[in-house]
């Protein structure tokens, strides 16, 4: 395949010099040595070296393809890869069933909902759940938690971690699980959650730019949580800049999710949309952002019950499931016959 030199990631002046000396395609450069190239084109030796490096790494011809560009996969290979990757359980068996095992690794999931419905609770629950050892059917990974609202409260994580440890210790059957339990402790759970606080969108962009390095250093990372994207981008005067930034952010997240096999979970706020005379609650950022996440979960109230709806998913049916937030975390709603709730309900006047 012929690739024009002008499409390489080089500075414009260098490209002009290359083209002026008749070097139109990357194939023309492949056999050249730096010294020769700099003589032919009038580039400095340093620049010539960079040109040749760029040609090699960006794939000048199929056989010279560098390690950075992944080879193409067949659909069968993809399927096998996906089956190897486990999902992160949510500790709500109904939601897991509806999602086909839980929150998928390697994909992005958006959680939308009104304040107080349980977005942060689900994020915290997932940060604990992702660490469930593999012998228990978990993923056994680490978490990067980007907190933009200050709502990451360690106290609450300890509640959930304690419940998860207790839950797993009751399930122990064989020696492998017994060994796994020695490392699945509250202290280890906390030390596997890497927290980042971002106060504005530039800090978030900076963090996402540096995150691939962190992920390479911590190959066990399986989950990236951003709680929430919305609160950093809600007050923006320049809407076209906002759209562009959000789109490039999405691209970065998708690239990270696939390359490092991590699940990306982001939360979003709700906003009111007026349609004629009646208003409706919709996720913030409008239609174009709706394409960004692979899966969208909508948390909402139905009276005093909490419901989660699968709003968008490429491979699962639409479903609405009731859940509850107990002192232990995100759980299935109690069955109606045993309706005693684990948490005290608020009293009403009557």
């Amino acid at each position: 395949m012929q690739r024009p030199v002008s499409s390489l990631g080089l500075s414009p002046s260098v490209k002009v010099k290359l083209v002026n000396s008749g070097l139109q395609f990357t194939a023309d450069l492949l056999h050249l040595k730096p010294l020769q190239l700099s003589k032919d084109t009038g580039l400095s030796q340093q620049e010539a070296l960079e040109v040749l490096q760029a040609v090699k790494t960006d794939g000048g011809g199929d056989e010279a393809r560098g390690g950075r560009v992944p080879a193409s996969l067949t659909a069968l290979e993809l399927l096998q890869q996906e089956e190897e990757m486990r999902s992160i359980v949510t500790f709500s068996s109904q939601l897991d069933a509806a999602l086909g095992g839980g929150i998928p690794v390697g994909k992005s999931t958006e959680i939308c909902g009104v304040p107080g419905v349980g977005k942060t609770q689900l994020c915290l629950q997932l940060s604990v759940d992702v660490q469930v050892p593999q012998s228990f059917g978990g993923v056994g990974g680490q978490v990067i938690y980007i907190d933009t609202e200050g709502s990451f409260l360690v106290q609450r994580v300890i509640d959930m971690a304690t419940a998860a440890v207790k839950h797993c210790s009751l399930l122990v059957e064989d020696d492998e699980q017994r060994v796994a339990m020695t490392t699945f402790t509250i202290e280890n759970i906390l030390s596997n959650i890497f927290l980042v606080r971002c106060h504005d969108y530039v800090e978030l962009l900076a963090e996402l730019h540096l995150l691939p390095d962190f992920l390479s250093d911590h190959p066990k990372s399986r989950l990236l949580v951003i709680d929430s994207v919305a609160c950093l981008f809600r007050q923006f005067d320049d809407l076209s800049l906002r759209t562009r930034l959000l789109h490039s952010l999405t691209q970065q997240l998708i690239a990270m999710a696939t390359r490092h096999h991590i699940a990306v979970v982001i939360t979003n706020q709700m906003t009111t949309r007026l349609r004629g005379s009646h208003s409706q609650l919709v996720p913030a950022f409008g239609e174009s952002w709706g394409h960004a996440p692979t899966i969208r979960l909508l948390l909402q109230w139905a009276g005093s019950r909490r419901m989660v709806a699968i709003y968008k998913s490429p491979c699962q049916m639409d479903a609405t499931i009731q859940y509850q937030i107990t002192s232990e975390g995100f759980r299935d709603a109690d069955q109606p016959e045993q309706s005693q709730s684990k948490r005290p309900r608020t009293h009403t006047d009557q």
Binding site: I144, Y145, F152, V154, V157, I158, E187, L190, S191, N192, I193, F194, L195, V196, R197, C198, H199, V202, E203, L205, A206, E207, H209, L210, F214
Partner: peptide, 19 residues
């Protein structure tokens, strides 16, 4: 990379230290 390093407040911190 240099700009991002300058802009971020801190590298990711384990929650245990926070606790």
């Amino acid at each position: 990379t240099a700009a991002a390093t300058a802009c971020r407040r801190h590298p990711p911190i384990p929650a245990l230290l926070l606790h």
